[in-house]
Design a protein around this nucleic acid. Sequence first.
DNA 1: TTGTAGGCGTTATCAC
DNA 2: GTGATAACGCCTACAA
Lengths: 339, 339
Amino acid sequence: MAKPTTPSRRPTLEMVAAEAGVTRSTVSRALNGEPDVSQATIKHVREVAARLNYVPNRAARSLASSRSMAIALVIPEPGMLALADPHLVAVMAGVSRRIEDSDYLLSLMVAGDSENAKIMRYLTSGVVDGVLVASQHSRHDALLYLHDLVPVVFSGRPTEQTDPPNYFIDLDNAAAAAAGTAHLVSLGRRRIATITGPEDMAAASDRTAGWRSALVEAGLPADLVAVGDYTALGGAAAMRALLERDPGIDGVFAANDVMAAAAVSVLLDAGRRVPQDVAVVGFDDSSAALTARVPLTTVSQPSEAMGGLMADLLLRILAGDDVPVSTVVESHLVRRASA
Amino acid sequence: MAKPTTPSRRPTLEMVAAEAGVTRSTVSRALNGEPDVSQATIKHVREVAARLNYVPNRAARSLASSRSMAIALVIPEPGMLALADPHLVAVMAGVSRRIEDSDYLLSLMVAGDSENAKIMRYLTSGVVDGVLVASQHSRHDALLYLHDLVPVVFSGRPTEQTDPPNYFIDLDNAAAAAAGTAHLVSLGRRRIATITGPEDMAAASDRTAGWRSALVEAGLPADLVAVGDYTALGGAAAMRALLERDPGIDGVFAANDVMAAAAVSVLLDAGRRVPQDVAVVGFDDSSAALTARVPLTTVSQPSEAMGGLMADLLLRILAGDDVPVSTVVESHLVRRASA
DNA sequence: TTGTAGGCGTTATCAC
DNA sequence: GTGATAACGCCTACAA
């Protein structure tokens, strides 16, 4: 057993001021790099502050300035589960990179259902200046009304229209999915199935709609739908179910790469050749597309750039700029071995 | 273009007090569930607060109470890269779950190198009551001296001894790795290689040491070492290098499951049967062990429980309890198909 | 260029 | 049980 750590009391601005022989105002100004402070005092004050290991109290600072210089990135997914999704991780990386070279600090919150209320209070309590929301389940629409209290940028078209509207960046998921499916059609495939994402996510159902429209346009049946959940296990189960339903499947469009990779694995283990017997198209162009047993042909979306864009948008809003409510990014098909 | 959102001013305690016809003190007490407040006023005040959508200002609150009711979980890995590691994600999930049903709020910070200073200031600025550090690279040892200002719990033995010591939970990585390697020996394998983790991580080098000691004990050569980085790509590259170096390899101990799974894939593609020709043992018993092409025999560590333990320890420290400086958790071998 | 003084929205310690 | 009143540590006019 150890005795509980007794953190030593941190120095305050007051103490730095006393030690430096000036007033608190001067210390504050010197430390915050405000104009109209003499080089000499700046230097002196900074030295004293460094010697004392002074770190400004953020609570006091934001109380006084009514800004916290912090931004929250909210992942509305229960239990860190979301972190298995490489697209989301790429978005997070993009956000992180953009925020890093700003003066803001990024803090991540993963919003399990139970914790939702706690997080909502946090986000509205004035300790973050802005909020980024990645991956939007429709059941979390409390987030949609956050923008009344703090600026918010969503990734993905919000499931509900609000007034005033929420800022968001998006991709035409239906068109992108249709393009991926059309590629399978152009390869001469006739029995084209889809493995969908979670049904309560707008982006996922848009992709299913895109798959359907491409098949309808080609005069092909759009009956082979298996619901997935964006995970490898879910994708594998869906693929097995599809094979059982129709062993003659010759094309699969999966709503993300992770499921596509799992599907490829199931197909190979079932003795099908990919792409000769069954062609597979994924979505995201994430790391999973490259580590799949057959490198995936996939609908590429600029995940990391999207994160950067979200962050950039928010920073501009915080700077008082006028920004467009929605920003649409482009996707394109990346051809590899699987289709 | 939309006009920048003008967040409406949040109501203050003052306003609730006025509306409810009592003083701020009473509102504060009623809302915080303090004793000595009449049931009637509690009810009334809460109603008014709810009607006004009152959310306490966290900065003011923590300034006055000198507690923030927030805990930071720091992942000292650059660029969200770490999130590809299922062990880490499991630890995070364990932390999250334990914090969720406390009164504290969890915020995650991913510490890219450049951002390190920003995060250090944040952690010492009084806006978090405690810090959890997961996955310890030796280059981030500034974190080791954080405990002077705020309670900290590490996962993994800190790379340096400090005084007073840092709290941590750990696993005997060397012994665990030795056990995994001994299993390969017991299977009659003679050319046993290892794929290591990053060289600057204590846990990783302990595993390499364990592998080596098991081989030495068995009178086998311990020369087949390939350095990996805990990623699939790194694991695959390492496996290819090993095969090139010695095509006669018949056993592989990988420092995590992700690399083990990648190694299995490389081996299969190179025409080796797993486990008949080459037996493979992983580490973690993470989700990657199950999704590998051959389900992995692996050294299991209770990742999620470890996260829970870390959180629990910190919570107890914050509650003023006496807790042990180190807590060691147990590992055991899980046998599946790969060895 | 620097000092003075008031205030940011809470909690906490007194009285009443 | 409730109301004054003074912190908490910093920022920011305004004055000098």
